[in-house]
Amino acid sequence: MTFMQSSKRYLSVVFAALFMLTSLISVQAQAAMVGTNEVIAQQQLTVDRAELKGMLQDEAVQEKLASMGVSPDQVDQRIDSLTADELAYFNTQLDEAPAGAGVVGVIVLFLVIFIITDMLCATDIFSFIHCINR
Rank of each mutant, 00 (worst) to 15 (best):
S26A: 15
L65V: 14
Q28K: 06
H130P: 08
L87V: 11
T123H: 14
F19H: 05
A50Y: 00
N37F: 14
R78A: 11
Q57P: 01
I25H: 09
L82R: 05
S71L: 03
N133T: 12
E96H: 12
S12T: 06
S23Y: 03
G100K: 11
F19N: 05
Q5G: 09
K53G: 02
L52K: 03
F90A: 05
V61C: 09
V47I: 09
A101E: 03
Y89P: 07
V103F: 04
G105P: 10
Y89I: 03
M55D: 13
T2L: 01
E59R: 00
S7D: 01
A88V: 08
R9C: 07
V34M: 04
E38N: 13
Y10V: 14
V108G: 10
T2M: 07
E96R: 15
I132T: 11
V13A: 03
Q77I: 13
V75F: 05
D48K: 06
M1F: 10
D95T: 05
N37V: 15
D58M: 03
R78G: 15
L111C: 13
Y89H: 02
S71C: 05
A101W: 02
V104S: 00
M119I: 13
D80H: 00
M55V: 00
A99F: 02
S12I: 12
V34L: 12
A29I: 15
F15I: 07
